[in-house]
Design a protein around this nucleic acid. Sequence first.
DNA 1: ATGTAGTCGGAATAAATATTCCAATGAATT
DNA 2: AATTCATTGGAATATTTATTCCGACTACAT
Lengths: 193, 193
Amino acid sequence: MPKVKQFNREKVLEAAANIFRQNGYNGTSIDDILKATGLSRSSLYDSFRDKHSLYLAALEFYKHTENHMFEEAGKKKLNGIQKIEYVFKEVVNYLATHPDDNGCLMVNAAAEMSKQCEQTAQIVCNNKDSIEELFTVWLDEAKKAQNIKLSKPAKTYGTFLYNTLCGLKVLSQSGASKSDLNNVVKLSLEALN
Amino acid sequence: MPKVKQFNREKVLEAAANIFRQNGYNGTSIDDILKATGLSRSSLYDSFRDKHSLYLAALEFYKHTENHMFEEAGKKKLNGIQKIEYVFKEVVNYLATHPDDNGCLMVNAAAEMSKQCEQTAQIVCNNKDSIEELFTVWLDEAKKAQNIKLSKPAKTYGTFLYNTLCGLKVLSQSGASKSDLNNVVKLSLEALN
DNA sequence: ATGTAGTCGGAATAAATATTCCAATGAATT
DNA sequence: AATTCATTGGAATATTTATTCCGACTACAT
């Protein structure tokens, strides 16, 4: 049998996602990636085809990571509203405690790449749809349990909450403090009537 | 007297801002800029120093353009709330009617450059502060005129509205429809109690 | 008309870039 | 121990990049 893989694919994708998040796609060189992932040049091209394919793989990985956090929230013994609160608390906490991480790879991808790369646009769009949908499900859950009464379709509020989420990720890159972010979350949640 | 300038500085900055908005800083080459602005290579370096300085100048120009629209809203015979409504309507309309413009240069700069370039971070931060402040003034105005009663400091709502604004600019790059954007605005404005 | 000084076009440069290629390495099976 | 083959390091390549430089041009005051 041949030599076994010396690197862990998930660790590599995580490191790649981090470096792309910091510098953007066009701002990250192959050498940057090699340094960040510890990969050899050959391994990168052998296992991930090229820089662009690695970027898309890292973006997908990032999406799954974030979705995983959302699904964890979904499994908790909380009502719909509390799940939403939990998710926003997690996001704000992450943004505030990782000031050097340059926000969110997905938002950065939407800003930098969605008009240059159709595949990125697809991932960004799918991500929006799935998170929006998750919010919507939780809102319907809360409505059925009579924790809340929505004067509009739940989907409308789902979009609103996703908009808040995207805003937070930009705001954290624009010099906002943690209490700023918390206040935004508080007002957004109070808007659910 | 020497030959007079053959190009209009504002037009150049506008064209530069547009191409940077579409491709990002690192995604835009000098050749892209020359094509977009009609400038000669020599003129670019003579009049704008280098690519990076041109980027910062274009970002400042973009900021002034957006601020101008906001100040126009401020001059209208509208109450505070109506001014806010007007501004959001303008933004949504622009985003929806310019699908190829890749959103907002300021948001894209925050995402792509704020961690790589201290000067960009400064401009982004100043922009946040001034727009937030404008919202806050208008909210205070509306409160004084008893068009609204705010249960929290006006500044808190100002930040919230700026967050909504940033969200909209990301959302429009993530496949959201115009009615999605309108619904987000509607819910955000209803949150002002 | 002539001189002046900023403008322009494009060649030249120098550096950075993504990607390919190949020989050497090393882990696991036989 | 020998064989196997993916992995690895690094040199080599080809392209793109930002920037500089210089000669030609042109609009204006004299």
